[in-house]
């Protein structure tokens, strides 16, 4: 191991190192996940979730639901199943495998709301679940709303200026 490091040219650390130098050294000796493999897993997981979503979407529209209603029902199915899978401790295992593939779809958002609800239930309905249910999803909600507000303001002025929106 030592020889390897000498070959790779990683200098030995010392107490006198600057924080940046030490950070650089630590980065060199710390193993990281295999990025292409993780991307492949995320692609597969996300793909499967989206295919399941599409399956429900098609089933609902084929059975006479309007497109809007069908997509709302599809979301409900995905959220509902994530909630159940989180409660059964299966969803975290899917994320361990698929990473962002499972977190980026609405399933990730559902998980981030249910997980604190389960964890903090012991601290009571108000100070536990009530106060802490959005500890993870809170930033997404806040900045999501804020971003759409900014977009709305931009839209308003562009609209006044007569920009054509199609």
């Amino acid at each position: 191991m030592d020889e390897n490091e000498k070959i790779k040219g990683i200098p030995l650390p010392s107490e006198n190192m600057q924080p940046e130098e030490y950070e650089k050294y630590v980065k060199k000796v710390t193993p990281v996940h295999n990025m292409p493999l993780n991307m492949l897993k995320a692609f597969l997981t996300g793909g499967v979730i989206c295919t399941i979503g599409q399956f429900f979407m098609n089933t609902f529209t084929n059975n006479g639901l309007e497109k809007d209603a069908a997509s709302a029902w599809t979301l409900l199915v995905l959220i509902g199943s994530t909630v159940v899978l989180t409660g059964l401790n299966i969803f975290p295992k899917i994320v361990t495998f698929g990473g962002a593939g499972a977190l980026v779809p609405i399933t990730g958002f559902a998980n981030s709301v249910v997980a604190p609800a389960i964890e903090y239930k012991k601290e009571g309905q108000v100070f536990g679940i009530g106060c802490k249910i959005f500890t993870i999803a809170g930033p997404v909600i806040l900045y999501g709303i804020f971003a759409s507000w900014i977009a709305g303001v931009i839209y308003y002025f562009l609209d006044m200026a007569g920009v054509y929106w199609g």
Partner: peptide
Amino acid sequence: PLEYGNQRPL
């Protein structure tokens, strides 16, 4: 929280 899904660095 335990049930929150995430990937842990190595």
